[in-house]
Write a protein that binds this DNA or RNA. Sequence first.
DNA 1: CTGATGACGGTGC
DNA 2: GGCACCGCCATCA
Length: 124
Amino acid sequence: MNPTNKTPPKSGETYYHQVYELASMIPRGKVATYGQIADYIAGCTPRMVGYALFHLDTGTRVPWQRVINAKGEISPRPGAGGSSLQRELLEAEGVDFDVLGKTDLKRYRWGGPPPKWLMARGLL
DNA sequence: CTGATGACGGTGC
DNA sequence: GGCACCGCCATCA
């Protein structure tokens, strides 16, 4: 993590790292939207969040499945049918899906990162 | 260095 | 309530 949230990450630590860190903090059974994550990372846009997660390896420990779009839907991934896998992972965590494959954001939306983490970034 | 691209968000109609 | 356009900025070729 870079000392200053507005300063670009150094070599080896990209914005992706921040996204991964934030995503790793999402508790089981909860989901977060790209916009929400981007909102907690200064100078970051929803696009970077999605891009970052896309760059993750298959065997990553980051719960990328808990990150969905603002509609509460699982973002369609180009070429891969992994979207269904993502849904199964969330269902296994207790996240319910409707017939449209959407989650109830009102119910499962992540409250946000712990203040301690925000303080570490100098936001508090 | 320039250009193109991308798991999206928000607003307007 | 659903669809269309614009903008956001880092990363890759």
